[in-house]
Computed example of a mutant assay.
Amino acid sequence: MSYSVAAILKGTPYLSLYGAKALESLGNSSKVTYTVELEEKELPDYENPGGGVDTKIIRVKSAKVALSLRKVSIKTLALALGGDATAFTGGAVVAEAHTAGAAGTLVYLDFPQDMTQSLAVTPAGAGDAYVEGEDYRRVRAGFVILEGGSIAADAEIKVAYTKLAGHNIEALVNIAADYRLLFDGVNEVDEKPTSGDFFKVKFGPAKSIEFIGDDFVSLDLEGTLQKDETKTGVGLSKYMRVRTGF
């Protein structure tokens, strides 16, 4: 029996590389929007006064899906940056080499440091350790060389600290990958399930990412639906399928 109902949809998007059976949640998302851009061609009626349309055809120029991902993870950040992520382990860093800049400049460490553990800065050769608060000021990314301290510009130094485990994400090195996107949703009005299966999507990197702001970060992505040649059969879409519980 057919039926109609008002709808407010909520749900979770899942993502996997195209062809892989490993859909992973993208977490809380404030938007999953499907749009179609159409190309219309009209043949005017040239036979009769007053004009009009003799024939009209409508073609699909492109179909797109837009996401607003509100949880930042390695997967979502790498996707938004069009990049690849590589993990690094935590632990002791004994003698990381750096060249000091002028007073007031930052020495950027190779890894994120554990701020609850000690940091030691010493000359690359012989000499006493530099003193925090007199020669340098420690910050999250490393340390800042202080005016009037003993660290000269261009001095070769070494640093010992405890690094945190984390990831490096190299941006714009992985924009060729294709993905499968699945929306697992529910209608709040009647609690009926609704899912959207987007078979083969090419995402571009996010056009902007707010690194400083007062609101929760939103990773806004747009992807183009591509034809999936593995979908065969009469009446079957090669682009997407919606499945509803009503």
Rank of each mutant, 00 (worst) to 15 (best):
M1K: 03
S2F: 09
S4Q: 08
A6R: 01
A6H: 00
A7C: 14
I8V: 09
K10D: 03
K10T: 15
P13M: 06
Y14D: 14
K21H: 09
K21N: 06
E24W: 02
N28I: 07
K31W: 00
Y34F: 15
E37A: 15
L38F: 06
L38S: 13
L38V: 08
E39I: 02
K41C: 13
E42W: 04
D45F: 02
Y46T: 04
P49M: 00
P49C: 02
P49Y: 09
G52H: 00
D54A: 06
I57Q: 13
I58N: 08
R59Y: 14
A63R: 10
A66M: 13
L67S: 01
L69N: 10
R70Q: 14
V72N: 13
A78K: 13
T86M: 06
T89V: 06
G90C: 09
A92W: 06
V94T: 15
A100V: 03
A100N: 10
A102P: 06
T105W: 05
L109R: 07
L119E: 03
G127L: 05
D135R: 14
Y136C: 03
R138M: 09
R138I: 10
G142Q: 09
G142K: 02
E147L: 11
G149P: 09
I151N: 04
D154E: 12
E156P: 04
V159L: 07
A160Y: 07
A160M: 05
T162N: 05
G166W: 13
N168M: 05
I169L: 01
V173G: 10
R180L: 00
R180G: 03
R180Y: 01
L181G: 09
L181S: 03
D184G: 09
D184E: 07
G185M: 13
E188W: 01
E188C: 09
E191S: 08
P193M: 03
T194K: 09
V201T: 00
K202E: 11
K202Q: 12
I209F: 09
I209V: 15
E210N: 05
D214I: 11
L219H: 14
L221D: 00
E222H: 06
T224D: 04
E229C: 12
T230S: 12
T232C: 01
G233P: 13
V234P: 00
G235A: 06
S237E: 02
M240R: 14
V242R: 10
T244L: 14
T244R: 15
T244V: 01
